[in-house]
Design a protein around this nucleic acid. Structure first.
Length: 934
RNA sequence: GGCCCCGUGGCGGAACUGGCAGACGCUACGGACUUAAAAUCCGUUGGCCCGUAAGGGCCGUGCGGGUUCGAAUCCCGCCGGGGCCACCA
């Protein structure tokens, strides 16, 4: 019988499903074995798209499947689930275009993608499959939102705590309330450390009921605030900063995005900035991803400094990372949105300032970013006093200072900051050098490096001759003493804008009262399901200033209105963003059917708390998380934040969700264009010598690009499985190159892997007679050595996920077997086991033909015999002056002297040395010999 | 502009901490089998040169330098490609 991959693959896929081969048992469940180490290996779950999978998707899925299968054979209990991240814009857009409810299209897409995934023979525990749009799932998403809403960040604990504890602390007067509702440790701090002005700490019992509610609200981890949001009129929704490209357009759809003030739900991720930063130390993630998160969080150390405005009571507070250059400040800049702009502007400048600010705010982020770096600005007519030099500093407005970072105001030091320098040169402002540097003329360009202070002294303090680091310290101390400033750690990270004006998302478990009060639902009232609606289209518009409506505002009153305690409440009409469901799905996989809790405690501990000896003992969490690098700062940061909150509140056991992260590369493919420059379907393009032809027309090969609709270069896995079988597809994708690199797809190359499997089959099965070509004669010495070196190579590669070289090793062994008529049984069985994680179907079939009646999924992974890896004899290449001149073969245990004399006895070596004296002989054991003779 | 990654035959890639460059696969070419083709099998396949041949020599990991007995690998400076961030004070 020939290698009939179609029959074999279908047979084993049915077998696995019928026998529940890959079902994982939780503690307490039937089949649970407490003594097995656990291994949780997770894919980033896909969005159920209408076009289904292309061959790029499974790259990571195949890799995790190999890990899962390998770990099972190593004796681990493996949790390997798959699900769907199904809320989000594309389903809704498709629904709007086709008039089909998104729930229906989502279900269809899921059915199709599940079929595709199953055809790849992936060893998921399908019983754990979940979908984020399922009310049984999003009920718990809403529940987690309630945890956020009902918590605050206790700075003393450095962690989230129930909001009730804040109320108690305020009532007990352990905490007091400052003028901006900030919490203050004691009324004795009534004199502001920075300004010296009274802060006005208030006691809880002095506050009205409304004030109390507001104070509490201002410390919840989920809160509403009127903020400048990224408004995308074309999509009819707001977007998080992370969802806006640096050209100021929407990541989805590439529509223009505008700034506009809106009252929105926010999550207070900023209070976790330092922990999100520090705990990166605990996880085994690729360095580039860690760096991206660090940059995104954007920690910088510096100082806050207050500048008094001349002839006014106002203070302008700035943040600077270079307080050592304070004496070099020659002007100040406020962001156009800064609240003091109006106050300080003089009458004569009022019109100009007003015009400038209006322009700046109106301009979408696009222009502001895409603008050449040329500086614009306008003088307010007001001045501030440099607190160290007493100099008058003109106050300007300029859009190169942004309200969103620091205090929205800066002191400008043109000598030592290039942006300030550009601005100063444009408007003829003075440039004062305060850091010594010979090689740079600060009148021409800024010197931004560190050095020694000059020109930096007043009657009380001198920084002159101090280094930058010393000067920063000295001046900050002096400012602090004077009540003019203090050290400050600043983060770029902003709070997370958490509401969207869409239909297809999780409803908030929130009611709004008639007097504007916000009431959270009780846990028992969950889930809040989406209302059935005919028209779920977003309220898109051309006009960025049109009033904001949400689709849910058109929901029937039977859904929208809730009567309670004699009052009529309205449900929150925004929905949660796409990210909500993916922030915690890895927890639900652990216990997907639990109706009492979002995840059972025992199961959570079992699957999340890491074994002590697995290489990353600190983090715990998912043992291996595989997905694309595009989620470096969105999903991965949000999920870490939620996880930390849940951890603080005692709901999960580990500080981090994902102990180890691996980013697979993308599979790319060539795209082709015709003479009009229009993309033609890549699958219809034929190669004809040097030319490419599509439908008789010559087409041009474009650059490699990500597979997809737009480049018309997607290849569906279905047709590949049809033609070559999924074992060949799996081998091919893994053989393409290192997993973390991008690589080019080439359908014609799959034949290599297909050939390998056919040859393997013929090494085991006589195609004519269907006989097994396996002998019970033990393998000879050489073959056994090769087998064990293959075991070592494949095992090492499994550990590092270097599947391309593991496959090469298996091919080499298989090629060796071709010359023999029969394969010794021990070699055959071992080889099948080694191959099985990568090509499981053919392996199962051969395993059965070798006489086993059970799946090999839980067979013990082969162990190599170290003794067989040690050769009796070693061949040494012999170099003379670094050039290869000959070879010697000598006993492995020969001493250096014997190796040396043997090498020197070699005729070719003698010739190469000639009359030159031998100065040195370098022997690297088991590697090579180098003779230095000059 | 800043930070990071990468550069090896016609192609994808291999080479563990510096130690035989090009494993393995694809392509191409030659041969076997076949009426023929496909499939399959065998061989060759980095460049240049010497030799009828067996065989041998030189060059070679983007470019230029350096360290070293020895560099694809480490260091310095360029060039080319990719990614992330981008007026973050």
């Amino acid at each position: 019988m020939k290698y009939d991959f179609a029959a074999i693959e279908s047979k084993w896929q049915h077998f696995w499903q019928a026998n529940g081969t890959f079902a994982a048992a939780n503690p307490g469940q039937c089949g649970f074995e407490a003594d097995r180490p656990k291994f949780y290996v997770l894919d980033m779950f896909p969005y159920p798209s209408g076009v289904g999978l292309h061959v790029g998707h499974p790259l990571g899925y195949i890799a995790t499947d190999i890990v899962a299968r390998y770990k099972r054979m190593c004796g681990a209990a493996v949790l390997h689930p798959m699900g769907y991240d199904a809320f989000g814009l594309p389903a809704e857009q498709f629904a709007v275009e086709h008039g089909v409810h998104p729930r229906i299209t989502t279900e269809q897409n899921i059915t199709n993608m599940t079929r595709q995934l199953k055809r790849l023979g992936l060893s998921y525990d399908w019983d754990r499959c979940l979908t984020t749009t399922d009310p049984d799932y999003h009920r718990w998403t809403q529940w987690i939102f309630l945890q956020l809403y009902n918590s605050w960040f206790d700075p003393t604990a450095g962690a989230a705590r129930p909001i009730e504890q804040l109320r108690q602390k305020l009532e007990a007067e352990v905490l007091y309330v400052g003028p901006e509702d900030e919490l203050i440790d004691s009324p004795a701090e009534g004199l502001g450390a920075v300004t010296g002005m009274p802060i006005g700490a208030r006691k809880w019992h002095e506050l009205s009921a409304n004030q109390r509610t507001a104070v509490i609200a201002n410390h919840r981890l989920a809160y509403m605030d009127e903020i400048d949001v990224n408004w995308c009129p074309a999509l009819g929704t707001v977007l998080a900063n992370e969802e806006v490209t640096n050209e100021g357009r929407s990541e989805r759809g590439n529509h223009p995005v505008f700034k506009r003030p809106l009252r929105q739900w926010m999550l207070r991720i900023t209070v976790y900035a330092h922990r999100l930063l520090e705990d990166l130390e605990l996880v085994k993630w690729p360095d580039p991803i860690k760096t991206m998160q660090r940059n995104w969080i954007g920690r910088s150390e510096g100082a806050l400094v207050d500048f008094a405005v001349v002839d006014r009571d106002d203070l302008i507070r700035v943040f600077t990372t270079r307080p050592d250059t304070l004496f070099g400040a020659t002007y100040m800049v406020l962001a156009p949105e800064h609240p003091l702009v109006e106050d300080v502007t003089s009458n004569s400048q009022h019109q100009k300032v007003d015009q400038y600010c209006r322009q700046a705010v109106q301009r979408s982020e696009i222009d502001r970013a895409a603008e050449t770096k040329s500086k614009t600005g306008v003088f307010t007519g007001a001045c501030a006093i440099n607190p160290v030099s007493g100099q008058r500093l003109p106050i300007w407005i300029a859009d190169y200072v942004m309200m969103g970072y620091g205090t929205g105001a800066i002191m400008a030091v043109p000598a030592h900051d290039q942006r300030d320098h550009d601005f100063a040169r444009t408007f003829g402002l003075p440039i004062i050098q305060v850091v010594a540097e010979d090689s740079v003329d600060v009148q021409v360009e800024a010197f931004e490096g560190e050095g020694t202070c000059v020109n930096s002294a007043n009657d009380e303090v001198s920084l002159n001759s101090l280094t930058t680091a010393e000067a920063k310290h000295a001046i900050t101390q002096w400012l602090d003493m004077k009540g003019l400033g203090k050290t400050q750690v600043q983060y770029k990270l902003r709070d997370w804008l958490f509401s969207r004006q869409r239909y297809w998302g999780e409803p908030f478990p929130i009611l709004h009262g008639p007097d504007g009060e916000i009431v959270a639902l009780d846990e028992a009232e969950l889930p809040v399901e989406l209302p059935e609606m005919e028209d779920f289209a977003p309220c898109a518009s051309e006009d960025p200033n049109e009033p904001v409506q949400t689709p849910l505002s058109r929901a029937p009153d039977s859904w929208k209105a809730v009567d309670r305690d004699g009052k009529r409440y309205t449900r929150e009409l925004n929905t949660m963003p796409q990210w909500a469901g993916s922030c915690w799905y890895y927890l639900r996989f652990i216990d997907p059917a639990n109706s009492e809790r979002f995840v059972g405690r025992e199961a959570e501990q079992y699957w999340m708390v890491s074994d002590k000896k697995d290489g990353h003992p600190h983090a715990g969490g998912v043992d291996l998380y595989v997905g694309g690098a595009e989620h470096a700062v969105l999903h991965l940061l949000y999920a870490r934040f939620w996880h930390k909150v849940l951890h603080d509140l005692g709901h999960v056991s580990t500080p981090e969700p994902f102990g180890r992260l691996f980013n697979q590369g993308y599979i790319q493919a060539y795209a082709y264009t015709d003479e009009r420059g229009v993309y033609v379907p890549a699958e219809e393009v034929k190669e004809d010598g040097q030319r490419f032809v599509c439908n008789g027309q010559q087409v041009r090969q474009e650059k490699l690009g990500k597979m997809g609709k737009s480049l018309k270069n997607a290849v569906a896995p279905d047709e590949i499985c049809e033609r070559f079988g999924c074992d060949s597809l799996r081998l091919y994708e893994m053989y393409l190159g290192p997993l973390d690199q991008d690589k080019a797809w080439s359908t014609k190359d799959i034949v290599g892997q297909s050939r390998f499997l056919h040859r393997l089959w013929r090494n085991f099965v006589n195609e004519e007679t269907n006989e097994l070509l396996v002998s019970d004669k033990p393998a000879g010495e050489d073959l056994r050595r090769m087998l064990h070196s293959t075991i070592k190579r494949v095992t090492d590669d499994m550990e590092t996920m270097s599947y391309n070289t593991a496959i090469a090793a298996l091919i080499e062994l298989n090629n060796e077997l071709i010359s023999a008529k029969t394969t010794p049984r021990d070699v055959a069985e071992t080889m099948v086991l080694l191959l099985s994680p990568i090509a499981p179907h053919i392996s199962e079939e051969l395993w059965q033909r070798l006489g086993h009646d059970q799946s090999l999924a839980y067979e013990t992974w082969p162990i190599y015999d170290k003794a067989l890896l040690v050769q009796q004899q070693v061949q040494y290449p012999v170099q003379v002056n670094g050039r290869l001149r000959g070879r010697i073969t000598i006993a492995t245990d020969a001493d250096d002297k014997a190796i040396e004399s043997s090498a020197l006895a070699e005729q070719a070596v003698k010739d190469a040395i000639g009359d030159n004296p031998v100065r040195k002989v370098i022997i690297v054991r088991n590697k090579m010999v180098n003779i230095v003779a000059k």
